[in-house]
Simulated assay, not measured.
Amino acid sequence: MMSKLTHLDDTGAAYMVDVSEKTITTRVARAEAYIVMKAETLKMITEGRHKKGDVFATARIAGVMAAKKCPELIPLCHSLLLTSVKVSLSAEPDNSRVRIETMCKLDAKTGVEMEALTAASVAALTLYDMCKAVDKGMVIEGVRLLEKEGGRSGHWKAE
């Protein structure tokens, strides 16, 4: 049985979920994304030869900023006071890609899954933007939630 969508009322109209009666708990979410590129592009980035500077540092900052802006980007997301946002990028030369992993944390009445997913997505988009002049064929893929903790539904981890 599929549970009812929480952002739709009985008539099908979208609304922001009322979380005022929920308990404040520590909430943590982790997400990932990949960006596949030419081997030469990845080598250029990892060797620090990109004319635009440190691509990973810029993508990391973009991911943090995106998590903080999530309610401005995605309708019906609550404004959250994030206590931690981490964005890590790692080159995977064997697969000619970069793996992006994000973690968002806070004590609140609602979760941070969308913030973690937004951070991963925007970090990948930033990598694409910075490298598109040399590799327009890059592919962003595998954006997904890895894990969430806290709240009524407890702990969930991707298989």
Rank of each mutant, 00 (worst) to 15 (best):
T126V: 06
T126Q: 13
T126F: 07
T126H: 05
T126A: 10
T126G: 01
L127K: 00
L127M: 13
L127W: 02
L127G: 14
L127V: 12
Y128I: 11
Y128S: 11
Y128V: 03
Y128M: 07
D129H: 13
D129L: 06
D129F: 09
D129P: 10
D129R: 01
D129W: 07
D129M: 11
D129C: 09
D129N: 15
D129G: 13
M130V: 06
M130W: 03
M130F: 03
C131D: 04
C131V: 12
K132H: 01
K132R: 03
K132T: 00
K132L: 06
K132C: 03
K132P: 02
K132I: 02
A133Q: 01
A133V: 09
A133K: 06
A133F: 01
A133I: 02
V134R: 04
V134L: 07
V134N: 06
V134Q: 05
V134T: 13
D135A: 00
D135F: 05
D135C: 08
D135V: 04
D135G: 05
D135H: 05
D135K: 11
G137K: 03
G137M: 02
G137H: 11
G137F: 10
G137S: 07
M138E: 08
M138G: 11
M138H: 11
M138D: 04
M138S: 15
M138F: 14
V139D: 15
V139H: 10
V139P: 10
V139R: 15
V139K: 15
V139M: 12
I140E: 05
I140R: 11
I140W: 07
E141V: 13
E141Q: 11
E141C: 12
E141P: 14
G142Y: 01
G142E: 04
G142F: 01
V143H: 14
V143K: 05
V143G: 05
V143S: 14
V143I: 14
V143M: 13
V143Q: 13
R144T: 12
R144L: 09
R144S: 12
R144Y: 06
R144K: 11
L145K: 06
L145V: 02
L145M: 07
L145N: 01
L146H: 04
L146N: 07
L146F: 13
L146M: 14
L146G: 05
E147S: 12
E147M: 12
E147I: 13
E147W: 10
E147Y: 13
E147P: 14
E147T: 06
E147V: 07
E147Q: 15
K148S: 09
K148V: 01
K148I: 02
K148W: 05
K148E: 06
K148F: 04
K148R: 14
K148G: 06
K148A: 15
E149V: 14
E149T: 15
E149L: 11
E149G: 14
G150A: 01
G150R: 04
G150C: 03
G150W: 02
G151D: 00
G151P: 05
G151A: 01
G151T: 04
G151F: 01
G151I: 00
R152W: 03
R152Q: 10
R152P: 01
R152S: 03
R152V: 03
S153K: 02
S153R: 13
S153N: 07
S153W: 10
S153T: 06
G154A: 03
G154T: 01
G154P: 10
G154I: 07
G154C: 12
G154K: 08
H155R: 15
H155E: 04
H155G: 09
H155D: 08
H155I: 06
H155Q: 05
